[in-house]
Design a protein around this nucleic acid. Sequence first.
RNA 1: GCCCGGGUGGCGGAAUUGGUAUACGCGCACGACUUAAAAUCGUGUCUCGAAAGGGAUGCGGGUUCGAUUCCCGCCCCGGGCACCA
Length: 1021
Amino acid sequence: MSSLLPKKIIKKTDSTLKRKGGRPTLASSLKTSVSSRRSTKKSSRPEYDHKKVEVKWPSSAPSSLKLRRTSKATAGKQKKYNHKQIEVKWQREWNKSGIYKTKDYSKKPKCYVLDMFPYPSGLGLHVGHPKGYIATDIYSRMKSMQGFNVLHPMGWDAFGLPAENYAIKNKVHPKISTAKNIKNYKRQLDLLGFSYDWSREIDTTDPEYYRWTQWIFLQMFKQGLAYESYEPINWCPSCQTGLANEDLEDGRCERCGSEIEQKPMRQWVLKITDYAERLLNDLVELNWPESIKDSQRHWIGGSNGALIKFAVTGHKDKVVEVFTTRPETIFGATYIALSPELIKKWLVAGWTPADSIVKYVTSVLKDRAKQSYKDNPDKTGINSGLVAINPATGKNIPVWITNYVLGSVGTGAIMAVPAHDQRDFEFAKKYNLPIEEVVIPNRIDKFNPPRADKKKVERLNVQAIVVDPKTKKVLFLKSNKFGWTTLPMGGVEAGEDIVEAAKREVLEETGLTNLKFIKVLGGQVRAEYFASHKDENRVSFTRAVMFELEGSFKEEDSKVEDDHELIWLDKKDITYPQVVHAELEDWLERWDKTNSIYVGPGVLINSGSWSGSNSKEAVNKIIKAVDGKVIKTYKLRDWVFSRQRYWGEPIPIIHCEQCGAVPVPERELPVKLPAVKSYAPTGTGESPLADIASWVKTKCPQCQGPGKRETNTMPQWAGSSWYYLRYMDPGNNKKLVDPKKEKYWAPVDLYVGGTEHATRHLIYARFWHKFLFDIGVVSTKEPFKRFGKNLGLVLGEDGRKMSKRWGNVINPDDVVKLYGADTLRLYTMFMGPFEAEIAWNTKNMIGSRRFLEKVWRLASKLENSKSDKYEVEINQVIKKVGEDIESFSFNTAVSTLMILVNKLDEGAVVTLGDYQTLLKLIAPFTPHLAEELWQSCGFSPSSIHLAPWPQFNSAKLVASTVSIAVQVNGKTRTTLSLPPNSTEEAVLQAAKEDNNVATHLQSKPISRVIFIPNRLINMVT
RNA sequence: GCCCGGGUGGCGGAAUUGGUAUACGCGCACGACUUAAAAUCGUGUCUCGAAAGGGAUGCGGGUUCGAUUCCCGCCCCGGGCACCA
């Protein structure tokens, strides 16, 4: 029963043995550890005294030294787990041996794993920041062990306002503070043992990097995708800069929270709208979380519709073009509504309307410049006095100017269809404009459909909904002859008022007269059904009218004929087809609404020759008939690309009186940021660069005449829109990226970062990438093939967002000191699902630390035997951990490893094979601990991180017995332990023999048996 | 208002082609070891009940032999968008 430890293990787990050369092992470092334990008892006391976090110092004593008696050699001599010692040691070692240096070409398949690079702020990292980096590090390490050539780089997105504001305040050049911050960030990241290839580090503020950012801008300029605009833009009065739509949060500056104003000024704008359709369409092929793709779809916001021209009298253009997504409703267009912005253009062009109109337009535009985007103001409008002609009906309709039509959407003009658009409806109600219904729902009675061979009769109907105010029940008629239940109903006679008709029907059928009118339930509903009592198909156009009884229902008030009776139903019991009306779902939908308008598809009415046709099918025909144009519009606006600030890439353009905006010749790139005296914005809407006359003044590259440099800089998003390409070839001074290297590495296989970038960085980068694809710089249509799960925020211990403001920031430096990087990494992954927002809890980390100590102690049970006791478990764990890492389910991967370790710990010995597998599986999570144990056990002279990932044997995944639940009538009464794949007969036999089961069967006959192999048997009596 | 997530013990959470709810970890209680404490190890820990047995996955219904999982109607929390024609 006793067996020898392998030589190496004895060597390395027993300090009393003399080592015979070889590599440094545990033994050599043991002496210090042992002696320090004796001499400095204090070292095992808490060293970390965080104010908020009361933490007990985890055990570092070599407990559980009740080693196997047979293994005297190791008794009492195992080294304690000292994270401080081993983490620094291995970080140095890996660095020295360069195991994370990535080769550009390899026969191995490539895998490009990318983190969103950070903005190195002066505050340094908090404990939540590394979550995504830990995940990608685990993923990268596994991939590399699985035989992939992994690219896992890191860099700095270092242009931006905080550094600039810091510079203004402290008169320190942003270059200097940024360098300092980067150094600190890098130190903190290195503390956690990431496998970054630092030889590929990039920094967006490095002129050698932004040379290429500027180069891309120039290419866009040459293609007409970068242009100057004078349209009003979002202006932050506090940051003194223009902003893109994407930079706003509820109409406020996302940085400082100031209300944004609309300010007309010269801006550089990128024509991202040219790419809108491709940005939208190509989303389908991306392996990204649906929520991010949804946000992008939303943001780009394509809508299909038509441009239709309305002839206008009283204006020189003689025509107004509108955009609509519902061209089929044009017969219901009862007025035209124009945006104030459009009128402004007309005014500029020389239109001279009444003063009241000018006044109205001016005041709306003024409100709009200041207005928060959050709440829609009340709709207002003014009749322009112009008259338009509806091209479908030929009728004259008024032209209004309103505040609910926006200049930036479509053509800034709409055809208003109040019957089928909520906004138009509200406006029409307010200003008493005509409402013409042209689309109604079409219902075919499913249970009583029209019959092909019967004649078709059209009828105009009314149905009465009579509610008893006391009981809230609704009146129905139950036919004794046909058995069906209906509302009181009947035909409407020509010219008859709908409410009067409904009252008449109620009187005729129930005798009730004490009705109080409540409302009409919206417009008509068309229904088709077979009327068996008349042997004909009916096509009915029905409206519903709701009444309340005056007082409660009294039997004596009613007068009912013999062929039917009155019944009262709760609203929840009113269901089709118990109540036979095919219109019922429409009534229920409109039940509680006061002004119900129909916006769905259906059948056209009041639409000339189109009446009776399907609204969807009519769309294109009607567009053609009114000479309209099919078109798609987008919500996405062009990207306002200039900032009036200092700390950004200078836009490489020279302004020349003769030649206009001239690009800086490529050989003169980069246009370097000059030093300035003051970083503060000038307040004139120009960047501080404008104050440096010597820098601004230059020659026009085209005519050699005097030129002025562009003084606007690029937004922070510029450098991050292409950085992933530079990692592939960071040192190239001839090209942005060598095409061969790009071909090898592109696209990014896995990208991980925060969802707050869903509609900016991730759209901008896709846009730039597609542009670079078009000009042949990159070979793929999309930059990021897979976006890992959404990165859930780590909250402070108080459940709030970790921030200086709440004083709940936890610094990873402290946590690493206390528990070590490995524990921090493991705990961060174990906390919960990757995508969940979870509060940090330093106390809870002890569980992860204990687990690592347990793994450590298992080494003392090592034995060189070939037991396959845990064969099935090990195989299952290999499979599960691999799948979980692949799918970013790190928390369950960790718990699976914990279960395995608990299992291994139950036994007296641990085999070398099992332990090696365990260490390999755990290596991506806790690289230092795994390496230390791997080396000290002498499993291989090379790093565990270069070892091959374990493979599972599919044939060994099922245990020798499975637990089968035995249920009687769906309730579990016992479980059976049986061989896998037992037959139903065998399981039933065994189940019946169980006493408890027998009691519950009570010798009743079993009427049915449900059997799920290897899981469950259910006996139904 | 619209769209997308989510709601399970004291806490973080696990389990969904419908099949043994509460894995793993924290905390707590008790025990072992210790002069003692810490640490470690062991046992227990949804709830009512003495037990047999019942009840619990936000609430109310439904489908099913069986529902955390599917369907219908609500409530609450988080995120995104918001007069987009």
